[in-house]
Design a protein around this nucleic acid. Structure first.
Lengths: 165, 165
DNA sequence: ACATCTAATGTTATACCATAACAGTCAAGG
DNA sequence: CCTTGACTGTTATGGTATAACATTAGATGT
């Protein structure tokens, strides 16, 4: 289901295994220590895999990569690692894509919206304070106690919008 | 996966097969005629099923009910009807639940947010103009052209919040 | 160092969600 | 009529996710 973006093609966003990924990884390590949870090898590797990926990765994509590196080859291996990352704010689940992506700003405010590009399958994490506040307001208006929210937008990223010359 | 709410128990929201459902159904018929599409028996029945349900229904729940009434018993039967309803604004897909729910306000503005109660599995459609506007703004800030969005909140509805005495 | 306890991993098995592809059917317009 | 296009039905298959249990590795107290 995935991947013209995950192959090797170019892509709109500027993520990839750059210095930024290193910083995020370091941040994740510190955060795990602070919380008293363990960023074990599989979990760390899973996070790295997400960080290196363009767009978002399906659990089975992650699983395949993990398996190829000597980790378990069965679905729970991937799901457990991914769920761990999500629970601790190190990754996000993109429900529309049945996929996961590394959190771009671990440790910070976690009200994020995701901008999913239909052109290149990239997923951008955008700060969503305003959106979240508006949602809280709407929920409050009907007496609903909001715990967490999923905000996902579909459209065209700046790059792909331009490419529609 | 579904249903303590779908059985026969009480529920927070006040939907069900009331007069309101009749009105929505009539509205749907008119809207279909206006658009030049056909609200065939399966489709109409599917909409009725959604309207009668508490919370949201999975495609396979709908399918089972349809099958019991003489319609086809295979997944595409349900998925086609459900997708038709969603495409024409008569139902919504709740991705977090892998489920569908009847639209509470067909024909009107379709920027809606969904409030999913963890207590009773009810799904409430809330107007989301403010949320949607804020999201458009956030998208615009990064040059993203927004086409459509999914906004789903998880928490406790007014009824269940109170019941936590 | 040792016993113990808990958390994490691995594996098997299975359940649930969704769609592709094709065959038959029905309704509307020529 | 009879053709045409939309709709329904069926078969088959693929993708997503979790339950349950066995095993192993880390932390803790003594």
């Amino acid at each position: 289901m995935t991947d013209h973006a995950a192959e090797g093609g170019f892509c709109c966003a500027d993520h990839s295994g750059t210095a930024n990924a290193q910083a995020i990884l370091a941040q994740a390590e510190g955060q795990a220590r602070a919380r008293g949870v363990r960023l074990t090898p599989v979990r760390k590797r899973t996070l790295e895999i997400l960080l290196q990926a363009h767009g978002a990765l399906g659990a089975y994509d992650v699983l395949q990569r993990l398996g190829a590196e000597g980790y378990g080859t069965q679905p729970p291996v991937a799901y457990r690692a991914l769920n761990f990352l999500v629970e601790h704010g190190l990754a996000h689940r993109i429900r529309r894509l049945n996929a996961f992506t590394a959190c771009a700003h671990p440790g910070e405010e976690h009200r994020a919206a995701f901008l999913i590009c239909e052109g290149c399958d990239s997923v951008t994490e955008a700060p969503a304070r305003g959106v979240s506040d508006a949602l809280a307001l709407a929920a409050d208006a009907v007496g609903f106690h909001l715990e967490r929210a999923t905000i996902e937008a579909v459209g065209l990223c700046a790059g792909c919008k331009g490419a529609r010359a």
